[in-house]
Amino acid sequence: MPERYYKSLRDLPKEEYLASGHRLCAGCAAGTIIRHLLKVAGPNTIVVTATGCLEVATTPYPLTAWRVPWIHVAFENAASVASGVEAAIKALQRKGLIDPSKRINIIAIGGDGGTYDIGFQALSGMLERGHKVMYLLYDNEAYMNTGIQRSGGTPQFAWTTTTPAGRVWKGKHQPKKPISDIVAAHRIPYVATANPAYVLDMVNKFRRALEVEGPSFVHVIQPCPTGWRFDPSKSIEIAKLATETGMWINWELDHGEFRVTVPVPKRKHVKHYIRAQGRFRHLTDEDIEKIQEYINKEVERINKLVGKEVIGPLAE
């Protein structure tokens, strides 16, 4: 089991470093994720955010929701900017220009577009160079900020405005790019996937990611009511379904040691997840079976990796 820094919700810091009054859509789980990230990180933190929903919704001049130092530069370079921040802090601390005893968390945040696609090179460079930066990917599976266009993180068959469902197309053609596996291939100290429905699992991963020496990466699924087409009250319910169906597996790779942190003894059929969202409305039962097969294979692969059945058989 992962290190349990926080055993119950009552252990979480009460301070809020992402202030209310931000303009994320009602029910946007990005708010939930970032609130907890900052609770865990605390005030000695510098955040770099890539262009995206989060950036735009939290900093409409002259207002900011951020209570920690924060910078936005561009879409594709959060990892490079964070590399620069980290190097600066190191150099300035070594030269005694700032307090050398203070541990400052450097966090880069990107959405799926800014991570899977346009920011991928910068991310890979940062990981290879070994900067002590935590990278958070909040994955809402499309370019939501520009109005729901397909990204490398969009799952197969999902409708987006650039992969519409029509007589010829059935939403996105290709499956989701396995970004966290690719990041893990960089052999950095810590990689994890998380889900805001499982808050304790998520915050413990944030804490671990900030603690390790060297780069870390936490990939969080972020249901988007606007782009996935569901009622805002269902954000967490759908996030939970993603894990209960095996569509989203919560794992961590800590210094090479792989663990599934949220075992699912009995798996729900993926139709429960798919049918809850408008973006998959065009799919037939047959199409959904294709997704189910894809998940079955992935579950098999994960179980093999762990060496036991952590994700159980289909039960309902």
């Binding site: 202030a19 009054g21 001049y61 002259p62 207002l63 951020w66």
Partner: peptide, 23 residues
């Protein structure tokens, strides 16, 4: 009068914007 580069000097001042109206 605007701080250089439009940098926001008051952390968390988004609380001035009441999103309760959206409800």
């Amino acid at each position: 009068e605007i701080p250089i580069a439009g940098t926001i000097l008051e952390p968390g001042n988004s609380v001035k914007y009441k999103t309760g109206d959206w409800r």
